[in-house]
Structures are given as C-alpha cells and as structure tokens.
Design a protein around this nucleic acid. Structure first.
Lengths: 257, 257
DNA sequence: TGGTTATCCTTAGGGTGTAAAGAGATCTTG
DNA sequence: CAAGATCTCTTTACACCCTAAGGATAACCA
C-alpha cells in the first residue's frame, strides 16, 4: 500500500485544525471516552506546567487516565498534536482592537498582548514551523495585526514586511522573558545568584573582556537607567524596557514612511 | 556526593567555550584519538547535513569512527555539545565592517551576513537558549553590531533595544527561508506543488476565507509586486523582499531619533 | 444473534541520552 | 624492568521516547 505521505496527513491535519464537523450519527463501537478537544487541552496543560520537553504522549494520556496509545485514535501523531495545540492556544488572543486613537496605540496594545501570550505559553515559541501550521487562529492573529496596520496606508508589500518584523520582535522579547523565568526553576539558582556566578566566571575566563568587546562593555556601563521598581526582578525589567524601545523604534520607522 | 548542578557544569562549559588551554604535559593513559574540536566540528557537520533532529551522540560518534560514549570523555553532555557547536559556528561571522559610508550601510551588510549564516546553519535557530550560551563568538557578534550602531549616537538603553530588534528580525527572516528550503526535501513535495495543495485544502476547509480574514486576503491580493527573477524560487524571493522592508523600516526608525 | 466497527490496551521494536564497569594503552614511580 | 596510576574507549544496561501491530471489549445494525 502506497502512503501519500504528507498528503493524506495534510488533509487530516487541516480538517482537525479547522474543526471539521465530526459526524454525530450513531456509529458502532464503544462511545469515545475522549475527544480531540480534551486531548489538545490536556497537552496544553502539560506543556504550560512542565515545558515542551515534558510533553510526551504518555504524560498527556496519563493526565486523561489513558495510555499513550489511546490518543492515537484521535490524533495521528505527536507532531500533529503539537500543531493543534499551537493553533488552539492562539485562540486566546483578542482579535479586535479599537482604532479610535490611531493605529499606533492599537499596534502597541496588540504587541503587548501577543508578548504576554507567548510568555504564558512559552512552549509555543518552540513549535518548529518547518512547514507552517496554517490554522485558523494563526490566520486570525495575522489578520488582526494586518487590519490594525492598514490604517497606516502602507502598500501591501511594505505592510507584509512590517508585520513580519513586528511578530519577530515580539517573539524575541517573549523568548528572553521566558528564558529568564525558566532559568531559576531549571537550575535551582536565583537570577541574581546565577548572574553573579556567571559574571565571575566570565571575568575569570576572559580577563580581557573590556578590551576584547569594547562596545558590549560600553553598553553595560551605561546600564544604570531609570528608577527600578523594587518588586519586579531586575532582568525582567531590563527585558521590558528593551522591548519597549525595540517596538518603539520599529513603529517610528513605520511613521517615517 | 553532592553535585552542584549547573555550577560545576557551568565552570567546565565556560572553560570549553573560551578555549581554556588544555595542558599538554605528557600524561598517563592512551593518546586521545579525538578532541573537543573535532567532535564539535563533526556535530556541526551532522546538524548542517541532516538537521537538528538527526543530531544524536551516536551519529556524531559514528562519523568519527567511535561509539557515542567515547564522546563523553571530551564533552560533559549533549546540551553542552550543542552549546559549543553554537558558539563555534558563530565564529564564521565577520567582526568588522567599514563605516566609511555610514552606519546604515554597515548595518545592512551585517544583517545580511547574519541572515546568510542562519540559513547556512538553520539548526542554530533551534538552539534553546534557556540560559544564554555566553560564548566568545556570540559576544563578538553582539559587539560587532553594537559597534556599528554606536555611530548613530543613540544612548545605551535605546541602543540595546535596537540591537535586540535587529537580531530578532534577522532570526525571523532566516527562519522563514530555512523552513522554505527544508520543506521540499522534508516532504518530497516541491514548493509550488506544496503550496498549491495547501491553498486548495485551505479553500476546501475554509470556503469563507476571504470574508473571515479580510486583511490577510487584501495582503495576498496586492502580492503581484515587482518583476520576479526567474531562477530564484518564488517563496524565497518573497522572503527576501519581506526581509528588506522589515530591515529598512527598523533602520528608518533608528534614523528618526 | 451475529457481524461490523470503534475504542482502548498490551506488547514489541527501534530510537534517544547517559550511568557503570571493564579492557587496554601509556605514563610515572619504585 | 615491574607495578601502579590514569586515561581512552567499549560494552552493557536502564529509563525514556514514539508508534506499529494485534487483541479484548463495547456498541451499534441487520
């Protein structure tokens, strides 16, 4: 039997992604105890709680009181499950932003929502997108930001570039925060301790750091910056401010055209 | 025995990354048949040729005519190996760009070099940076771009944001190209065929696409664009132009300050 | 009631990273 | 020169991973 790999699969994945109506006519066989919905939800729970590395078919099955193999009745493979989780999670994102105060503030709000989404579900950043997922909620996300930016009057070609840049910057900022948040629990070392140890090691191993990387050193020297809020971890504040200027610069560039 | 996890490891990793001089005094035991260098090089070869997913200790060992376990004499674990590969590969990047024609053209050249680097070594984009690698070549990369951008006169805080945004945009652009390139060999379906099949599926599964995602549709409609070069794959040309406008917009934003 | 079909389980096979223990090579020391 | 120490590399083993195959059971239809 010839398997049209990636063809039959693609069709089924698309059907699952776009919520092909499952026929509810009575059929022989035991009543399904699970559904794609609950499996995807359980997968998201596992990934949220324990990270992408801990996402195994066994773990998801266990959370539902089944074996790993039981999932294969509903979902063709683990990668398909991850694709479904990816798109389903994106359904959390708002899809409309008021444009009363202009496109810029809407874009900023959108960017912050997306960033928080990625921070909430850091595993989403690790979904390998060799061949994009093409699910409805990702399209909705792109549609939302595109809609906001149409207010700029940019032509499609340029707008496409701006959208890409925006998503990239948001992803990058979220990645930084996610890493920072995961580091303490992953290593059992607090941010500050970890950083102190690292910088000590750095000095030890590269005593000529300042001459060797003059510009990086200059950057760090000028790092005093404005008042710190005492409750928020240091690195996270840096990340937040970095994101603000990244985003601001990019939007300035949009304005400039 | 208490293992100071992530502490003792960190010290060793840093030593390996920064090329701690290996003592060459004669020591008992068989002559080493391998070295960290050749192992890292073999790892890069495997990852370049077959992708990150195919990078296993067994595969690297085999390429060197050894077993997987032989590597553990030189390298503490697979993640450390990947970190070493990451930084070693970054050593390919140029570290100086002429500033005769101003910071902007230097920045553009830098960005294109970095993009090509990522496309050449797509696995680099998948190196999980929960705790950053902190190797010399990554610092050099950051130092290079920071040095270029000091020509803008921006203060450190802003400059940090711009650097982050630049790296993010380049990463994003490279990711797109890498995916596009991998898709045909991964699925055995050519770009065009794949895309045709997908859009057919999309229409089938979401016949209301145009009304449901009006802005995305608008974007695609305006996609005619300037003349296509016949030899370069279509999707890659789109990616290239998207990158150009992403980058351009961002740099416009820098100029605007 | 028997046949058909669907859910779910157990088993099994081929992967993965790496701990542990041993074989053999090469040095230093007595 | 022999003995001991130390290092490289191999074999074996374990725990985990995804998933193919086959069988037990449940629910429907004829």
């Amino acid at each position: 039997m010839v398997v049209y790999a990636g063809q039959g699969d693609a069709r089924r994945t698309m059907a699952l992604l776009w919520g092909a109506e499952e026929r509810k006519e009575a059929r022989p066989g035991p009543k399904p105890g699970l559904s794609v919905e609950v499996i995807v939800a359980a997968g998201i729970e596992v990934a949220d709680a324990e990270g992408m590395a801990a996402l195994s078919m066994r773990a998801v099955g266990e959370r539902l009181g089944r074996t790993a193999m039981a999932l294969y009745t509903y979902v063709p493979s683990k990668t398909e499950l991850v694709d479904l989780m990816y798109d389903r999670a994106m359904g959390e994102l708002p899809t409309s932003y008021p444009l009363d105060e202009g496109w810029r503030s809407a874009a900023v709000a959108w960017a912050h929502d997306l960033r928080e989404f990625f921070v909430r579900h850091p595993w989403v950043l690790q979904v390998s997108q060799a061949r994009p997922v093409l699910g409805p909620n990702e399209f909705a996300m792109i549609d939302t930001v595109t809609g906001i930016l149409r207010g700029t009057g940019l032509e499609p070609e340029r707008l496409r570039g701006v959208v890409a840049a925006l998503v990239d910057v948001v992803r990058g900022a979220a990645r930084t925060v996610a890493e920072t948040r995961q580091a303490p629990s992953a290593t059992g070392v607090s941010d500050e301790e970890w950083w102190r140890a690292r910088s000590a090691l750095l000095l030890e191993v590269a005593p000529d750091f300042a001459e060797r990387f003059p510009s990086v050193s200059w950057l760090e020297r000028g790092d005093a910056g404005p008042a710190l809020e005492p409750d928020v971890p240091y690195l996270e504040q840096v990340a937040r401010r970095t994101f603000a200027t990244s985003l601001g610069t990019l939007l300035d560039g949009v304005t400039a055209r």
